[in-house]
Amino acid sequence: MSIASAPALSARAVAPVASKTRRWLRRYGLPALGALVILAWIIVALSAPALSPYNPATVDVTARLRPPSFLHWLGTDVLGRDVFTRLVHGTRVSLTTGIVVVLVGAIIGTLVGGIAAYVRGRLEELIMRLTDLVLCFPPIILAMAIAAALGIGTTNTIIAMLIVWWPKFARLARSLVLVQRSQEYVEAAVVMGLSPTRILLRHILPNSIGPLIVLVTLDVGNAIITFAGLSFLGLGVIPPTPEWGSMVSEGRELIEQWWVATFPGAAILTVVLGFNFLGDGIRDWLDPRSRRR
């Protein structure tokens, strides 16, 4: 290669870099954005008290329903509480409940579904009919009935949601384990005399974890929306605990004072979008066939 062609070469070399960035953004842009949004909200949740000079529960009747200003960034609610402060503190409840419900639900569901698929026979039949039974109720109505029956409170609402939540993981885990079960490495493990528990937990489950992770990520947003919805109906947190769903509920009649309900709802939207972007990204990464569909 001659020296004369060097500038042309470097000019050509620049173009691929730019298109490389574009390609990276195309492929990982949205998932990265999703991860960033989630990370930002986690930081907000951890540092909530440091972010605002107000207390989320302090009532100030002289400052009722103030529009957003420099003093109150997102305005104040009916009781004169600072909306920004309550929103920031509400992050803790929404993120924790969403993640706890999905993680615990996924663990219960995976174990139950995995055992069903591994043991087969009567037990499998029993377990799968049980999941069918739960799935034959509409989730929000069943959760609502259970939450109302257990009594209002964050823990009870989480329990109600868990009862509704595990079956879909059980179904997925069962179908995944059924596929792995007939693989040769499982036969080898059986021949080697490993215990069923060990085979299931150490060999089969790690090989079926991918789709489960995708469902978990995509489902956190779902769980956050459901919890906020139950809270909105008064079946979630006990007031005056700051929580996004109940904040929207407190502001739902205030159409003129739109800021009371708008901001907490927008917060829910961003978190859920974040988890959906990230979940889609993980799915594409684990299953390249689904990419760009």
Partner: peptide, 23 residues
Amino acid sequence: SLIGVSSPTFWLAFIMLALFYGG
């Protein structure tokens, strides 16, 4: 479709009412 799937129903309802009925 992303906004449809990701926005909480109760909030969307409020926004619609505030915008088209109130505003």
